[in-house]
Design a protein around this nucleic acid. Structure first.
Length: 579
RNA sequence: GCGCCCGUAGCUCAGGGGACAGAGCAGCGGCCUUCUAAGCCGCCGGCCGCAGGUUCGAAUCCUGCCGGGCGUACCA
């Protein structure tokens, strides 16, 4: 199966409108395109290849603000284009700059192998700031999603135990992605799917019953393969407080009662874990409803009608391989019970019935085979390919004192999410969970996470926010100036112009982080912006005698503070006024 | 064996056709009478796993190896 990383259409190129500066540059692009074409056609007598010209923001301050790569090297070394193409283009742009006072270009240099470096007029760069304050939506938001209903399903751990550190990564990933999609105009619903019946739940119920028996002084043994974690003892203690007696045998009545107790109490436990992490769901979906409603059976019938099911060894199999699945898999066991896969397919049809225009499932890497089979089934039933996207993430290891420890629920030696949050706090946990690209393994550096200094990137970003807030307090300024482009003219320091250009990128960063399933890009951006601010703060004073310059700088800080605040909010971290 | 993901500085990772490969941590050296030093500046540190290929140009794309993780259940 192909990677789902690019499941949603990438927007960074498709939506120059997200950036004030690149919008400005559209004019330049047109001009340069025409110049290249004319020069090329004139010399060669043919149209230039489409890939010949590209204008993009330069992320290297030592070069231009924008860089045009016109493949001059190719031109000169292969003789397929005029040697002085670069100079001609530069000249054409300079001409335009002379005749048009509003032209955003300040200077054009012919540089290195095939590059023209374009420098914007500071006044053009300044225009970014008013745009930040005046945009109709909060800066950074867009309507790429056109209000479409998107369901994000994540965590979906069965209520058989507390959430682990591994679940924590998925919880943060899903929550941050949901927040990102909201910013780009999707209508989001967060769903948690849980299994509340079946063999594992029965085993949980019996384990709870056995624990309760033990707690009330009986020598009852845990069932074989039963759940052994300490949490069950706690749950049993809580339960006993509400119970007069524990039934002597685990009969059907007991099973029903203990199943209900176990599921309810464990689900509450999980909800609390998530709440401590700042994650809340709109909808908790119980697997049982699919069985009771007959949807499982109906789904099977639909698959059969499409000829996607066959019988082997007394079981019913899905012809997954024929439709792009990893391998054929059992839908109905030989004893007649549906498999998890069968129910999962029915679940996705249910999602479709509920009217979601897109569905994003976030899952760990261990579910890969399953995903290909669900996709195969949907393909078979004629659902559009892009309706369902899977976002897959790798696992988490904790690293301490240079030693990596692997998580293992079975071995009983797992670190619970709640312990981690208790030690580090929600903000640090969230930042570390999101700071790496999802498809890479995450080594959670406990030593670094414990640091309360700026070594800790989570703290570092929050401190930048705090410093700006502190300046506004000092200036007794509750409503900092928003500044017109003219009022911003004193901003001429390289650091100031660079900061503004960084701010200008923010909406594109959000779109990229959401659509390319790269929420870590936002964490990276927040860190970079903070770094740029801290350096600027150290080098240039804000509160000064020059009233005009101070006002302009306060406007810049106001914008930085806003964007940092947005970053923190999307990451689900606090934005502290004081530290 | 087959499928998916990952190999970039001592460590954790960005960058995913374009200029001399970037951060943080660790190490070394500087900077507080002025807006919070939870900060800043500098130095040190790289055959971008290996080998081919495509290209004017490859850390980036393709192929094959090597190394690590996950999956390959009538578990969920």
């Amino acid at each position: 199966m192909e990677s789902e990383r690019r499941a949603f259409v990438s927007s960074s190129k498709d939506s120059p409108g997200l950036s004030t500066l690149s919008l400005m540059l559209t004019r330049l692009e047109t001009l340069v395109m025409e110049a290249v074409r004319a020069a090329y056609v004139n010399e060669i007598g043919a149209e230039p290849p489409a890939s010949f010209l590209e204008i993009r923001p330069s992320d290297r301050p030592q070069f231009g603000d924008y860089t045009s790569n016109i493949a001059l090297l190719a031109a000169s070394s292969t003789g397929t284009a005029p040697r002085d193409l670069g100079s001609r283009l530069a000249e054409a742009i300079r001409c335009q700059a002379k005749t048009d006072k509003n032209y955003p270009i300040d200077q054009v240099d012919v540089a290195g192998p095939g590059f023209i470096n374009v420098f914007l007029r500071p006044a053009a760069i300044h225009e970014v700031l008013p745009a930040i304050f005046q945009s109709e939506r909060p800066f950074g938001c867009s309507d790429l999603g056109e209000g479409k209903r998107l369901q994000v399903e994540f965590v979906s751990s069965n209520p058989t135990g507390p959430l682990t550190v591994g679940h924590g990564r998925q919880a943060v990933l899903g929550d941050v992605l949901a927040r990102l999609y909201e910013r780009i105009g999707y209508h989001i619903e967060r769903e948690y799917y849980f299994n509340d019946e079946g063999r594992q739940i029965d085993l949980l119920a019996e384990s709870l019953w056995a624990r309760a028996r033990q707690q009330s002084g009986h020598a009852t043994e845990l069932p074989e393969d039963g759940y052994q974690g300490d949490y069950l003892t706690q749950v049993a203690t809580e339960l006993l407080a509400t119970l007069e007696t524990v039934p002597e045998t685990f009969d059907n009545t007991a099973r029903e009662a203990f199943r209900h107790e176990a599921v309810t109490r464990m689900t509450d436990w999980i909800k609390d874990d998530l709440k401590q992490l700042g994650v809340e769901f709109d909808h908790w979906f119980s697997e049982t409803t699919l069985h009771r409603s007959g949807e499982v059976e109906a789904t099977l019938q639909r698959l059969k009608e499409k000829g996607g099911v066959y019988e082997k060894d007394g079981a019913q199999w899905l012809k997954a391989e024929e439709h792009g699945g990893a391998k054929d898999s059992v839908l109905i066991r030989s004893d007649g019970r549906p498999t998890y896969l069968m129910v999962d397919i029915a679940y996705h049809l249910d999602k479709h019935e509920r009217g979601f225009e897109r569905v994003l499932d976030i899952q760990g890497a261990d579910h890969h085979a399953e995903q290909t089979c669900v996709k195969a089934a949907l393909r078979l039933l004629g659902y559009p390919e892009e309706w369902l996207s899977y976002a897959v993430h790798q696992f988490v290891s904790l690293k301490e004192g240079g030693q990596v420890q692997k998580m293992s629920t079975r071995a009983g030696r797992f670190v619970t999410l709640r312990d981690l949050i208790a030690e580090l706090g929600k903000d640090v946990v969230r930042y570390f969970m999101i700071s790496r690209k999802p498809e890479a393994h995450l080594d959670f550096d406990l030593d670094l996470a414990r640091a309360e200094s700026s070594d800790n990137p989570a703290t570092y970003i929050q401190y930048a926010f705090t410093r700006i807030s502190s300046i506004f307090r000092k200036a007794e300024m509750l409503n900092p100036p928003k500044g017109s482009a003219e009022a911003l003219s004193p901003l001429g320091e390289a650091e100031e112009l660079q900061l503004i250009k960084t701010l200008d990128r923010f909406p594109q960063v959000i779109a990229h982080a959401a659509l390319d399933f790269a929420p870590h890009a936002l964490a990276e951006y927040g860190l970079n912006l903070s770094r740029a601010f801290h350096a600027y703060y150290d080098k240039h004073r804000i509160l000064i005698d020059d009233a005009a310059l101070q006002a302009a700088r306060l406007t810049l800080l106001h914008a930085i503070r806003f964007v940092l605040g947005q970053c923190l909010e999307i990451l689900g971290m606090d934005a502290p006024e004081e530290m």
